[in-house]
Design a binder for these strands. Structure first.
Lengths: 232, 232
DNA sequence: ACTCATAATAAGTAGCTACTTATTATGTCA
DNA sequence: TGACATAATAAGTAGCTACTTATTATGAGT
């Protein structure tokens, strides 16, 4: 960085500081980008970048002509990375193992059709599989794959390669939806996860689409003690 | 937009399309920004913006001199907005109500000190409160507030105003950490949440800091059926 | 071969100009 | 007074130049 120049991150911090210090409180209107640029002696484009970042972080709200104001009701905006399960386990230093439990065809249940936003219900590939960390159940996945959108999955030997990994690598999506919730283990899930019935388990439900055609819907149920983490 | 010109979003979509179509697969190196600019007949700065966005979405990885490559192990990067609880309930069309259960002082338990990254344990403000939606328990929060970092909270009448709201508005943070996990309701929690013991509940644990001083640590336990949602 | 300085490279950043677009304010006419 | 066209405004975008920085490749000297 050239000496004396402010980077857009410096500008972001300066403006954030104004907000933290109360110079501009929730709901207050900030000066126009151009005026801030003059005050801080930098280019408007630098202020623009800084403001865009503050806007992305949910700290300010920007509207054309309306200007920039500090958000009334700040939100905590958390970014979560959900990696491939094998990767996640290996990154924790665990030994990954995978077991296919079921592979079949059929009509998905109503809940899955609703999640996929489908009215009619074509037959889909259904996969149940278990991901293990150091030999212990880690994540159980119950998946439906739309074979019209991702026909190549039919050629994959799912007893060797997990659908999780294959899809992420071979069926890129343009849109997705994720839900997190807690559920009590039923008899079967408890057995699969080597825990007791009614144990609280974290479920991560994901649906992906390629444009408007659904690719897959998966309910990933994590072992007891599983924690999803997001920083900064 | 001036006719014939490509916006950076167009460029992003064009590059994304190259990846979706397999022209560039996982691990492959993409051309330099400058060459893409020539190919698409736009400015390098436009490619830069598009690439930055693809990088933020976890689709490509960029390194100075190393160039840009398609990520080997794509991650699902989900962005969650966690609003003020009152706001969340009102946005769903529910009637918000709030009840303070306990306000006291004391040393936080070890788990809280660890989460806050503190070795010694000063006395902190402890708050237990219930947020209700249409008269039914919605979220129970168990909170510790570091009164050296946020002393003004001592002046607040917490039986009227929730610490959740006051802190979000008056104690801006520079850093935070969020954890999601499932837990079985214990006897007391079950009573508070009007559910049965051992019910699976989603817990959202949040810690915020102002620079390196912890502000607050809260465990928010949501009622059965609660779902956290993230789109796109 | 091996180390280390140097060059080359590709992304990142800052500044400028010019134009576009969404939105709000205004002022005219019925 | 109200509806509606018009002007003004502030952010958003595109293009250009120039420079910086991190990283990799190279090549000289031991």
């Amino acid at each position: 960085m050239q000496a004396g120049r402010l980077s857009w991150k410096d500008v972001r911090e300066a403006i954030h500081e104004w907000i933290l210090s109360g110079r501009y409180g929730p709901g207050d209107k900030l000066p126009r980008d151009a005026d801030i640029a003059v005050e801080l002696a930098c280019a408007r484009s630098t202020v623009q970048r800084a403001m865009q970042d503050l806007s992305d972080s949910g700290i300010v709200e920007r509207r054309r002509k309306g200007g920039t104001r500090v958000r009334q009701d700040p939100v905590v905006r958390a970014t979560l990375d959900i990696p491939i399960t094998r990767r996640e386990i290996e990154d924790r230093g665990g030994l990954y193992d995978y077991r296919l439990i079921e592979r079949s065809f059929g009509k998905p249940p109503r809940a899955v059709r609703i999640a996929m936003n489908l009215s009619d219900a074509p037959d889909m590939l259904r996969i149940e599989a278990l991901h293990l960390c150091d030999g212990r159940p880690y994540i159980f996945e119950d998946r439906w794959v739309c074979t019209t959108t991702a026909p190549n999955i039919l050629k994959v030997d799912l007893s060797r390669d997990s659908a999780n990994e294959w899809l992420v690598r071979n069926a890129p999506y343009t849109r997705f939806e994720v839900k997190f919730f807690a559920l009590n283990a039923d008899q079967r899930t408890a057995e699969l996860m080597a825990t007791t019935p009614r144990s609280a388990l974290l479920a991560i439900e994901r649906t992906t689409w390629l444009d408007d055609r659904p690719i897959t819907h998966v309910t990933a149920i994590a072992a007891p003690g599983y924690r999803l983490l997001s920083r900064s």
